[in-house]
């Protein structure tokens, strides 16, 4: 096995473990911390796929900004354990596990059907276009309008958050 394969298996196992721990953890703060571990694992997998820019943005935006926001809100609301939130219907939980198992099965069956012309290895161009330089060039040449639209979206989100979270008189 090459070093990349070993790294992939290690990171994949830790990503799945942290995701499971995140879902099964009762304490919301611990859930968020396991989610950050999961985001770092995904960033390493992006690096394995030669997507350096996406990996850095993953750490900066997800693990840095979004998760700090989540932690901040959880500590602001002072929620404590989820066992205090009472369960009404227990049979719903069983149905939920069965449904998610069916989704996983469907996805894996769909993936395992061999595609025509499916490439066997990472394309040689992947190293070139994963860098900040080429992503930036692509964004500002072919995707300028969507880029500007996203900036308007973020502005609208900021205004919306201030309006929603403001204290009503």
């Amino acid at each position: 096995m090459s070093i990349e394969a070993i790294l992939f298996y290690l990171i994949a196992i830790s990503a799945i473990t942290s995701a499971l721990l995140m879902v099964l953890q009762k304490n919301p703060v611990k859930s968020v911390l396991f989610m950050i571990v999961n985001f770092f694992c995904l960033a390493v997998i992006y690096l394995l796929l030669h997507a350096q820019f996406i990996a850095i943005v993953q750490i900066l935006v997800y693990a840095g900004a979004i998760m700090v926001l989540f932690l901040f809100v959880i500590m602001l609301l002072n929620l404590g354990n989820e066992s205090l939130l009472k369960e009404k219907y227990n049979y719903k939980r069983t149905i939920a596990y069965i449904l998610s198992g069916i989704i996983l099965l469907e996805l894996i069956i769909g993936i395992s059907i061999p595609l025509n012309n499916s490439p066997a290895q990472i394309s040689a161009d992947a190293v070139k276009f994963g860098s900040v330089e080429s992503i930036g060039a692509e964004l500002f040449q072919n995707y300028l309008l969507p880029f500007e639209a996203v900036s308007v979206l973020l502005l609208a989100a900021i205004v919306g958050v201030v309006v929603l979270a403001k204290k009503r008189k």
Binding site: A96, S100, I108
Partner: peptide, 18 residues
């Protein structure tokens, strides 16, 4: 697919909105 399904389990079973 596995990570997606774990996310589905969380959405369907957890009661805490966050």
């Amino acid at each position: 697919a596995i990570l997606f399904s774990i996310g589905v389990v969380g959405v369907l079973t957890r009661r805490n909105a966050i």
